[in-house]
Design a protein around this nucleic acid. Structure first.
Lengths: 143, 143
DNA sequence: CTGGCTGTAACGTCATCTGTTACAGGAGGT
DNA sequence: ACCTCCTGTAACAGATGACGTTACAGCCAG
């Protein structure tokens, strides 16, 4: 798959918001987040926009504005972040409809659909075990 | 991520080989597999080439040539197929190096690396529970 | 009202995947 | 040894999507 960095960007932004909050800075602008992630502020706004629609962060407009966590970092799991930023299923089906004359072509899609569903659930269960607070703790230990 | 259909193509081809084998047809050419998947034979050769390098199928050249399973379908797990056809990690890191002045930017990559590793392992463990024989069974039941 | 920041559209660039054509190379049957 | 069939792979076109950038409308505290 494509090396998709959306989850990385979102988790990085959330961890940075969690650290800033702990340090008493309640808001961060997209420019400030972008400076840590080292990318363009618009990328951050797009990512945090997804997280806002999922209810994980909130935003304040006007001067002195910025982003903050909508919940304590212990209560934000990577599964929720994954759901917020990842739209497409993990594995894609055939681009063109398989040959329905062939017994394999006829039944393969529902069979794979259920198998892929189980695999995605296993992935989510694992991501659910880690919170933004966990990520921040491991990040500060590694740094 | 990109809707990547490589795993789907490979599993479809293997299930079709397994069914053909059960019906007494020991070899299938890439044209015959392509007719069931409904794609170009070169796509099939590329996919089966990955599986051959992983030791899951074998190929015979010359006239009357074609592909066949290198092992019984009960002993080929989707985890092996996944490893054979999927080169990139599931989640990508930042495109540009994060800001190392920031404590989050400094430690986020090793932290995420270990978390992503655990998530990929959970995915693989789930894929390991299903064999090509299982896929074929479910496919024929669904068809 | 004003200044600062968000939200989003529009666009370019780049990488990747699928699909296609073309052709060199290997191996069994004669 | 030759033929013939099929594999293996390079080269290319088109589509898709991600990232990055610029630009601008909208919103709101002061």
């Amino acid at each position: 798959m494509a090396a998709n960095s959306r989850l990385t960007i979102a988790v990085h932004a959330l961890a940075w918001l969690a650290l800033a909050q702990r340090q008493g800075r309640d808001q961060l602008t997209s420019d400030q987040v972008a400076a840590s992630v080292n990318t363009n502020p618009v990328i951050i706004r797009r990512s945090l926009g997804d997280l806002r629609r999922a209810g994980l962060v909130s935003v304040r407009h006007g001067p002195g504005a910025g982003w903050s966590l909508a919940r304590p970092p212990e209560e934000i799991s990577l599964e929720e972040v994954y759901d917020a930023v990842e739209r497409d299923p993990l594995f894609g089906m055939h681009h063109t409809e398989p040959n329905l004359e062939c017994p394999v072509g006829k039944g393969i899609r529902p069979a794979l659909g259920s198998i892929y569903g189980g695999a995605e659930q296993a992935l989510r269960r694992e991501l659910a075990r880690t919170s933004i607070a966990d990520v921040l703790r491991q990040t500060l230990r590694a740094g």
